[in-house]
């Protein structure tokens, strides 16, 4: 499964992380470094497994299980808030 942003969601890379905005609802989100990394990989069209693999290179002191759990939680949040939608591969 891959992901993309709906048309009414815009985002911006800032020096301190990522901010997201749902243009329809007017809700604004800020992401910390870890969540921002997950977001960037997700919108590049990477699968959940690919995201975990990429982040393992960055966060070497985190176990695969912990990282996978963080990715799952973040993706669940993004999908729940409709900041991302699933697309068939």
């Amino acid at each position: 499964m891959r992901y993309q942003t709906p048309e009414d969601v815009t985002w911006k890379n800032l020096k301190t992380g990522v901010v997201l905005l749902n243009l329809t609802s007017g809700e604004y989100y800020t992401l910390n470094d870890t969540a921002a990394d997950i977001w960037r990989h997700a919108i590049e069209g990477e699968s959940r497994e690919a995201i975990v693999a990429c982040l393992l290179d960055t966060y070497k002191d985190v176990s695969t299980e912990d990282l996978a759990r963080h990715v799952d939680e973040s993706m669940e949040y993004f999908l729940g808030e409709k900041l991302l939608v699933e697309v068939e591969e």
Partner: peptide, 12 residues
Amino acid sequence: GNSPGGHEKLSK
């Protein structure tokens, strides 16, 4: 210069 602090959802 925003300082994100997590999954902060801010409602307009």
